[in-house]
Amino acid sequence: MELRTIRYFLAVAREENITRAAELLHVTQPTLSKQLKALEDELGKKLFMRHSFSIQLTEEGILLRKRAEDLIKMADKITTEFLALDDILGGDVYFGLAESYQIRCLAATIRRFKESYPDLHYHITSGDTEQVTEKLDKGIIDFAVLAQEPNTAKYHYLTFPHADLWGVVMPKDCLLVEKDSICVDDLFGLPLFCSEQGWSNDISKWCGNNMDKLHLEGSFRLSYNGSLFVKEGLGYLLTFEHLIDTSPDSGLTFRPLTPKLETKMYLIWKKYQVFTPIAERLLEMLKAELSE
């Protein structure tokens, strides 16, 4: 299976039209169709359902698309890494980040680093622990920031200097606003929003035997999306402080949980990872600044 064929497949999957894909790839339509047929023959599966003016991925095609996208990202990253091996002043570094106000510490370090190395190019993706560690394990990213303790058998890590405080984001006119902090009893029977990771780990530990009295109305990977549902009066969002705008004009209010619930953040990278020179230098600066 050649990378060129994989790129052809992804182009057709995106365009859902062989003619348009062929124009973008600067190949003839018969050539592209022949390559796709050869790919289907090699895998022994039908990847497309062909219609009069468009094509649609089969279930097998959808699976291949996900794998192919990761494969192309890894291939492109390998190419850029080798091109950067002799470039000690610039290059690309890839991060996968959980949501936290402490990401500002990382951003501040990158800003200072770029003053000395302006040719650094950094790439940011967001996600929960499962999403970013999957990319890290596949080599798609160099570093990940997690909101849970890392697996020390697989990763080196740095701990961010502070912890994120858990609380409830609610409409500013609801009755719970009158309380300085929110205990588990206050949440009984309420429609709650939370990330799946936070609900299964942090909130589960916090409420103990009362977990079955809490109702998860819906889960969100991004707290901002959850806050929009809160604004519509659909429920209450369990999240970190500082992620959501709760200023006087926002219509929302944050109240911390009691007893206090905090989560540490960790910057991780794979053991035995070989970095490009620019990534190695950035890591040394991160070690020094996060330790402080």
Rank of each mutant, 00 (worst) to 15 (best):
D245R: 02
L267H: 11
L261H: 05
S250H: 10
L237D: 00
D245H: 10
T246Y: 01
M265C: 09
Y266H: 14
L267V: 02
L252I: 06
T239K: 07
L252H: 11
D245F: 09
L243Q: 10
T253K: 15
L237Y: 02
Y236D: 01
T258D: 09
G251Q: 13
I268Q: 06
I244C: 15
P248N: 00
I244S: 14
D249T: 09
E241G: 02
L237T: 04
T239Q: 08
Y236G: 01
T253V: 14
D249R: 06
T246D: 15
I268D: 07
L252W: 11
T263N: 11
S247C: 03
K264P: 03
G251K: 12
L238H: 04
E241R: 08
T246S: 00
S247K: 03
G251V: 09
E262M: 10
L261T: 13
Y266V: 00
M265D: 05
S247D: 12
F240G: 00
I268A: 01
L261R: 14
S247H: 11
T253N: 12
T263A: 15
Y266N: 09
T253P: 05
I244M: 13
L243R: 01
E241D: 07
F240Y: 15
L243Y: 03
M265P: 04
K264W: 12
S247A: 09
L261E: 06
L267Q: 11
T246P: 04
L243C: 01
L257Q: 02
R255I: 06
K264E: 14
K260F: 02
M265S: 09
I244R: 11
P259R: 14
K264I: 05
D245T: 10
I244W: 13
L238V: 09
D249C: 02
P248W: 11
F254Y: 08
T253E: 15
L267I: 07
Y266A: 02
M265L: 13
L243N: 06
G251I: 07
T253A: 13
P256M: 00
L243P: 04
L238Q: 06
S247Q: 03
L238G: 01
L257Y: 05
E241V: 03
L257D: 03
I268L: 05
P256A: 00
K264V: 02
P248G: 04
L267D: 08
P256H: 08
T246I: 14
L261Y: 04
P248Q: 04
S250D: 12
Y266P: 01
T258N: 15
E262F: 07
E241T: 00
K264S: 15
I244N: 10
M265K: 15
T263M: 10
L243W: 05
I268F: 02
